[in-house]
């Protein structure tokens, strides 16, 4: 299935649209999406950006998702690099 993944912080610079579309298996988990994003970044950008993903969380509009959670279908997701508000 296709995942619409919004980009924030330093990862926003990966694509000027501010989002990516990644293909994952139907029963994919957050861990699978992380792996797909790392693979995309390693082939399209720098390894430094891929390493940021190792410390990033994944979220829907209303919650941070656990690593083992199945990806919710039809929901826009976001990748959240380490945060630095305030």
């Amino acid at each position: 299935m296709k995942i619409h993944l919004a980009l924030y912080g330093t990862l926003r610079e990966v694509d000027p649209r501010g989002w990516l579309e990644l293909e994952v298996a139907e029963a994919a988990t957050v861990a699978d999406l992380r792996a797909a994003l790392v693979a995309y970044l390693e082939s399209h950008t720098s390894n430094a950006r891929a390493s940021v993903v190792e410390r990033s969380a994944f979220a829907s509009r209303d919650s941070v998702l656990r690593e083992t959670s199945p990806l919710p279908a039809g929901v826009e997701l976001a990748v959240l690099p380490p945060v630095s508000g305030g």
């Binding site: 912080g9 330093t10 410390r55 990033s56 969380a57 979220a59 919650s63 941070v64 656990r66 690593e67 959240l80 690099p81 380490p82 945060v83 630095s84």
Partner: peptide, 16 residues
Amino acid sequence: WSEGCSLCDAQSAEAG
């Protein structure tokens, strides 16, 4: 971009 705190460590808003 500033370095920050990983939300992976929290895993959920409440834990965070």
